[in-house]
Amino acid sequence: MAKEVLTLDNGTTCSSWNYSGTRLAAGSADGTLSIFDSRDPPSSSSLRLSFKSKVHEGNIVKIVWVPPAYGDAVACISVDGIVSLLEEVVEDSQPLQWKICKCFGSSSDKVLDVQFGISLASLKMVAAYSDGHMKVFELLDPLELKNWQLQAEFQNVIESVSSFGKAVCLSASISFNPQNGGSQESSFLVGFNSNTSELNSAKVWEFDQAHQRWLPVAELAVAEDKGDQVYAVAWAPNIGRTYEIIAVATHKGLAIWHLGLNPDHDGRLPVERVAVLSGHDGMVWQMEWDMSGMTLATTGQDGMVRLWQSNLNGVWHQQAAFEPTS
Rank of each mutant, 00 (worst) to 15 (best):
Val66Trp: 00
Ala223Asp: 15
Ser108Gly: 03
Asp290Cys: 11
Pro68Gln: 05
His211Asn: 15
Ala210His: 14
Val248Thr: 01
Ser197Leu: 01
Ser34Pro: 02
Ser34Val: 06
Ala75Gly: 07
Glu87Ile: 11
Ser93Trp: 13
Phe322Leu: 10
Ser326Leu: 02
Met125Asn: 06
Glu153Val: 12
Ser186Lys: 09
Ser108Trp: 04
Val230Lys: 08
Trp257Ser: 06
Arg213Gly: 14
Lys99Arg: 03
Trp205Asn: 07
Ser46Trp: 06
Asn147Val: 11
Val61Asp: 08
Arg241Cys: 01
Gly293His: 06
Ala25Trp: 08
Glu138Leu: 06
Ile63Ser: 03
Val126Thr: 09
Asn10Leu: 11
Leu296Val: 05
Trp308Gln: 02
Ala247Ser: 14
Glu272Tyr: 11
Val204Phe: 01
Val5Met: 12
Lys3Tyr: 14
Gly267Asn: 12
Glu244Ile: 02
Ile60Glu: 10
Gly227Met: 00
Asn193Met: 03
Asp264Thr: 14
Phe322His: 13
Ser292Tyr: 13
Gly253Ser: 05
Arg39Asn: 08
Leu220Gln: 02
Met1Asp: 11
Cys103Ile: 11
Gly132His: 10
Lys166Tyr: 04
Val157Glu: 01
Ser84Asn: 09
Phe154Cys: 05
Leu140Gln: 14
Arg241Tyr: 02
Ser45Gln: 15
Ala221Gln: 03
Arg23Phe: 12
Gln209Tyr: 13
Ser183Met: 06
Met294Glu: 15
Ile100Met: 04
Glu91Phe: 15
Ala247Glu: 10
Phe104Asp: 06
Asp228Val: 08
Asn10Ala: 09
Gly303Val: 10
Gln319Met: 06
